[in-house]
Nucleic acid binder design. Structure first.
Lengths: 106, 106
DNA sequence: GTTAACGTAATAGCGTGTTAATACATTAAC
DNA sequence: GTTAATGTATTAACACGCTATTACGTTAAC
């Protein structure tokens, strides 16, 4: 997507941690939403939100085509999200577990 | 980008809060990174990381073209990030303040 | 007054994530 | 055995964020 020399690549690795720390610094859902809406374009945020919705439906064992009806997300994308959920980085699983432990989760 | 009926739009609004709560549930930078890498594609994550890097340089008062040299991000994108920083949702400002209060910030 | 630096804007091209449609192999139901 | 549901794969079309380039108006330096 973009040309980048090794110097920039190295700097970017450190920046990835920095971004994570920015999210960690948020204390409420409102604050987190504000950061998300500054960091992402509306289309991007919609994509992220869609994926997370799909993750929760997948976790419930809902079949792809039913998720599609519920969310409007294409079966193609749902399949990709499912792949991230199974062979990803564990972030989805972790978030799911934590949310379940929360008193009022959906 | 996508066709969506009102029912889906309404459901999506609630889902936006849910995504924020997912991030809130992360406790360490590693956990946060894992969630980010599951939620985003590599290209998207690079875009988010770039924006956040740019924000920090802008906050230091660095001129656009110098930021471009440091980061490889185009002046066009830098200008857009600057607009979000000034007329956005306050998420950038908030994250900047919080990070500055942290002992070892970059 | 000239010059240079700066933010900003306009354009074209490119990469890539999403959708829709179709199809296929597997599995379960009857 | 047939049928239907399911996950998966392929294709074409589209949306959109990013880059590079060029240019413009403003401001500060000299």
């Amino acid at each position: 997507m973009k040309q980048r020399d090794p110097q920039h690549l190295e700097a970017n690795r450190a920046a990835r941690s920095s971004l994570a720390e920015a999210f960690l610094a948020m204390r409420t859902a409102d604050e987190c939403r504000a950061l998300l809406r500054d960091l992402t374009t509306p289309a991007e945020l919609e994509a992220l939100v869609d994926r997370w919705r799909v993750v929760k439906f997948l976790d419930q064992g809902m079949p792809y085509r039913e998720i599609h009806v519920h969310t409007g997300v294409s079966v193609t994308t749902i399949g990709r999200v499912a792949r991230y959920l199974e062979n990803g980085n564990g972030g989805y699983r972790l978030a799911l577990e934590r949310i379940k432990q929360t008193p009022n989760h959906d």
